[in-house]
Design a protein around this nucleic acid. Structure first.
Lengths: 208, 208
DNA sequence: GTCTATAATTTGATAGAC
DNA sequence: GTCTATCAAATTATAGAC
């Protein structure tokens, strides 16, 4: 048996820990999270936690990398697909909202941590493979402008508008819910609508 | 001399502390910030820090309230003005970008902390007076729809689109800069453009 | 692999001299 | 008002039994 092989039991515990850590880290951030809370959430004690993960930082990096891997490759897949522009915009919104709906606090978490330690993020988490790369999409927008399919528009601003309208509600969720008296169900329904609403809003603005 | 009167010296030190605390808190969040770091940044020691502010929480609340007061009343002023819709959209984008450009990390900070402790935020920081209230703007949108000035659009989605496109670049700034190789000057210039770009983008999408 | 108990470290907060 | 020195509490990490 190799060094990295896992018994069924250790796999199960490791999974429990990772689930617990994800929940606590995403809720509290790297600094706010307490190893005790993670252990409690996992139904084990701190010693066992350290048995599986040498220290907090290592556990954090694992969680963070997992989160990035779940999020960014799918975005890149859409950014780099061969679909026509309007289809791409629809796919991006729908796909992103679907993925994030299951981990609603992931975007804020990611933005937080990349802000807290940009270098760590770029080097250790994004290894070129996970790094979002919108280049092809940007060129595609420029092409459509040249062809006269859409109005003269700055591709970067268009990209930013699309990403903003899709991600932001997740990032601002507590503020929105507090201010508009929106419950979880309503928020969910609203995001479901936005899968159509955002592409529609964009296309109406740029089509000739 | 009343209890709250301040000598020139104590005012100066208090100001130094608040500036330092703002910087550290906005950078690290409530949990990540260290009293030592704040003291260092202010060029004093921890004891003196506690002399001016009883504890970390009190200092944090002060900073946070200051930040909120700088941000939200101006937003409300625009939300509740009597300007026509299109003018209002332009004012909001321009004003918001201008205010936040001077404290670029304020939005992420606010969203973070409201996420961390929603109750504290709503009760202690927003005292009805600071609370963003978009009701009038929402009704105004609905009116324009009725009048046939703009297409049939869900006011809430429109509001969310506007806020998203304006705030999000600040929230995602480190990610954007890292991914697009954007330096500070470029970011600044881009946001300057967006004061026109966003209203234009919106109006083209909704006008009939 | 998992636990209890405890060490080691960090960090918020205070006492007391000047 | 400001500092040095120190305490007290919280929190990460480890030792060692089972």
């Amino acid at each position: 048996m190799s060094k990295t092989a896992k018994t069924p039991k250790s796999q199960l515990t490791e999974e429990k820990i990772l689930d617990a850590a994800r929940k606590i880290f995403v809720q509290q951030g790297m600094m706010g999270a307490r190893m005790q809370d993670i252990a409690d959430e996992a139904g084990i004690n701190k010693a066992l936690l350290h048995y599986y993960f040498k220290n907090k930082e290592q556990l954090f990096e694992m969680i963070f990398k997992q989160a990035s891997i779940r999020l960014f490759p799918r975005i890149n897949q859409i950014f780099n697909s061969d679909d026509p522009l309007f289809v791409k915009i629809e796919s991006f919104c729908a796909e992103y909202i679907d993925v994030v709906m299951e981990n609603p606090y992931l975007p804020l978490f990611v933005l937080n941590e990349i802000h807290r330690d940009t270098e760590l993020f770029i080097q250790k988490i994004w290894g070129e493979s996970n790094r979002p790369n919108p280049l092809k999409l940007l060129m595609q927008i420029e092409e459509e402008v040249q062809k006269g399919t859409i109005r003269r528009v700055n591709p970067m601003h268009l990209l930013m508008n699309m990403i903003s309208m899709t991600m932001f509600p997740f990032v601002a969720r507590p503020m929105l819910q507090a201010n508009l008296g929106m419950d979880d169900w309503t928020f969910r329904m609203m995001m479901e609508q936005r899968k159509k609403e955002i592409p529609d809003f964009i296309i109406r603005s740029i089509k000739l």
